[in-house]
């Protein structure tokens, strides 16, 4: 029987973020929070393997109380249990402090019910750091497989898994002992369309809430702002470039405009050889 653990994060939907032109700050109104898309695929992959091998899936997240809805969504997809690690004392955590909190919680879960495989999304779309998954793996001393695109085999009897991951040059198959941790690309599995009873169960589901004191007594020096070596020094909006020249290219002006543009490219440093001009 497989015991898979999935670490997820609730994030603002960055595809729809807007900036207040006056203050330069994020306009939060109208920005829905969603389960980090990569994490959703990680959950889907865990569910696929639970269906194949039998067993169960525990999902964990660190976040504000509202993150309950992200855990419910995992239950909807087929996870069995959700744990929300939530406490004001955790706020201000960077990736190092977050990986500490999650790793300690996972140790606790593992004590009671040994874990075979840990799934994360490859990165969260709000921070894009891709550090928490690797950080947790290191803290637990588990082999780490990042950018996983396909799980070929999970062999619980012999205690190994074959996982395909993506690298710059090619894909590679990793054979790893279990337990192991992986971070997942979207290709890893398609999000299932839940049956109605599962959806209804998820809407009624209340995840466990763990605090900074119970059931894991956290070292206060390693959590929240205190446990975070990095801090945000300042924020701003990206620098706007000077706009270039606009040329109308329609009807009779089309030919001229195209000539003009090609000339400009030729004149520009290193542009000429690209379009057949002299070096």
């Amino acid at each position: 029987m497989l015991h898979a653990l999935v670490g997820i994060k609730q994030v603002p939907d960055t595809t729809n973020i807007r900036i207040d032109p006056e203050t330069g700050s994020l306009i939060r109104q109208g920005v829905p929070t969603i389960i980090n898309p990569y994490d959703a695929h990680a959950v889907a992959a865990a569910v696929e393997w639970k269906r194949k091998l039998g067993g169960k899936i525990t999902v964990i997240t660190m976040g504000p109380p509202a993150a309950v809805s992200a855990l419910q969504e995992c239950i909807e997809m087929g996870a069995d249990k959700g744990i929300l690690v939530s406490d004001r004392k955790f706020s201000g955590a960077d990736t190092l402090a977050t990986s500490y909190v999650l790793a300690e919680a996972i140790k606790k879960i593992h004590e009671e019910d040994p874990i075979d495989l840990i799934f994360f999304g490859k990165q969260a779309i709000d921070g894009d750091t891709a550090q928490v998954g690797p950080g947790v793996a290191v803290r637990l001393g588990y082999p780490l497989i990042t950018y996983a695109v396909n799980i070929r085999e999970v062999n619980l009897e012999e205690g190994y898994a074959l996982i395909e991951r993506k690298t710059e040059l090619r894909n590679e198959i990793i054979k790893t002992t279990l337990p192991a941790a992986m971070t997942c690309e979207k290709e890893i599995a398609e999000i299932p369309y839940a049956a109605l009873p599962d959806l209804i169960a998820s809407l009624r589901y209340k995840p466990q809430v763990w605090t900074a004191d119970e059931p894991v007594a956290y070292d206060i020096a390693q959590i929240g702002l205190k446990g975070s070596p990095t801090m945000v020094f300042k924020t701003g909006t990206p620098v706007q470039h000077e706009p270039g020249e606009l040329i109308k290219a329609a009807g009779t002006s089309l030919d001229k405009a195209v000539d003009l543009v090609l000339n400009k490219i030729m004149e520009h440093a290193s542009g000429a050889p690209l379009i057949g001009g002299k070096k």
Binding site: G244, A249, L254, D259, V261, I275
Partner: peptide, 30 residues
Amino acid sequence: FSVATVGLVGDLYEIIPALIKKIHASKNKG
């Protein structure tokens, strides 16, 4: 256009074929 060195305002389905033609010609000449 705010980051463009040069911006062409028009239908890409007219502009790109024209670009291809001219670049092709210019390369042959080159």
